[in-house]
Amino acid sequence: MTDILDLYCTFNNYADYYTINWGSIAPDILGPILITLFQHKQEYKKPVFLKLPADLTFEKADEIIRFAIQHHIEGFIACGPTQDRSLLTRSTPTEINNIGAGGISGLPVLQKSLKTVKYLSEHTPKDMLIIGAGGIITSQDAQAMLDAGAHLVQIYSAFIYEGPYIVKRIAKVCK
């Protein structure tokens, strides 16, 4: 717990917000950490978001929403990687096997992310921020995420494939 608190306090002058990946810390351990962070958020005023995995069921999402409200989480980032290999539609079975274990991010996650963002926008308090992430490559993807209920979008893979100019192109098209 002290490690996370130390990071929160140390990087206060550099970070705009903090992200905790749901599932990285067991909820029974995460809860007391968030209670302690909440006490320091009064001083540092840096929001904390939970990043949700792409394979999250809606039943589990309801449980996490309740947890987030209870622990003063400001919002969600949806979604992180998926374990679902069936989404790699442009890859052969041999290529998929050679990828090995681990999560898959980028374009294969987009549809799961859109569904999760839509669910969150319909089931979370209106003051909770929803950041759409996962598979946003084009301005159309970003607009779809906003249309699903995201307040903001976050990109990663697009930087790799398109370079930093992608931000300007997406911003120009999106409302």
Rank of each mutant, 00 (worst) to 15 (best):
A15E: 06
S86E: 07
E95M: 10
S86M: 07
I96T: 03
E122W: 01
T36S: 13
L152S: 06
N97W: 10
G103Y: 04
C79S: 15
A26D: 15
I29F: 08
D16A: 14
V153I: 15
A26Y: 13
W22E: 00
Y165F: 10
Y14I: 12
A54H: 03
F58W: 02
G75P: 01
Y156T: 04
L52V: 09
K60T: 13
A150Y: 01
G80D: 14
N13T: 15
N21V: 12
I33M: 05
I170Y: 01
I4C: 10
A101E: 15
L120F: 01
N12M: 14
E162C: 11
K168R: 15
I137F: 07
T124Q: 02
D84H: 04
I104M: 04
Q111W: 09
D84R: 06
Y8H: 05
E162I: 08
I131V: 09
L114N: 03
A148G: 04
S24H: 15
P27L: 11
Y17D: 11
T82M: 07
L52E: 01
Q143F: 01
F49Q: 06
F76R: 04
A61N: 00
R169A: 11
D55I: 02
K168C: 11
P47T: 08
A144T: 04
N97S: 11
I136Q: 00
A142V: 05
I130A: 04
S157V: 05
D141Y: 03
G149L: 03
G80C: 08
I99R: 10
T82R: 08
I73V: 07
I155G: 03
Y17C: 11
L107Y: 14
F11Q: 13
D55F: 01
A144W: 01
T10M: 12
R85K: 01
A101W: 10
R169T: 14
H71Y: 13
P108I: 06
V153G: 07
D3R: 15
D6A: 14
N12S: 15
Y161E: 07
A150E: 04
E162N: 15
S113E: 00
P53W: 02
P47K: 06
H151R: 08
D6V: 12
L7Y: 14
Q39L: 08
L152A: 08
Q140W: 07
P125C: 04
A68F: 04
H123R: 14
S139D: 13
R85W: 00
D28C: 12
K115T: 08
G31V: 08
I69Q: 13
Y18N: 08
E63R: 09
S105N: 10
G106F: 01
T19R: 09
G31E: 15
F159H: 10
I33H: 02
D84S: 04
Y161N: 06
I130M: 05
P93Q: 03
K45I: 08
Y161C: 06
I130G: 02
Y161L: 09
L50R: 02
G23Y: 01
G149N: 06
L7S: 14
K115R: 14
N98S: 12
K51Q: 07
G134W: 00
Q143M: 03
A171M: 13
N21H: 15
A148I: 02
T82A: 08
I160A: 14
Y119I: 02
I166S: 02
Y18D: 07
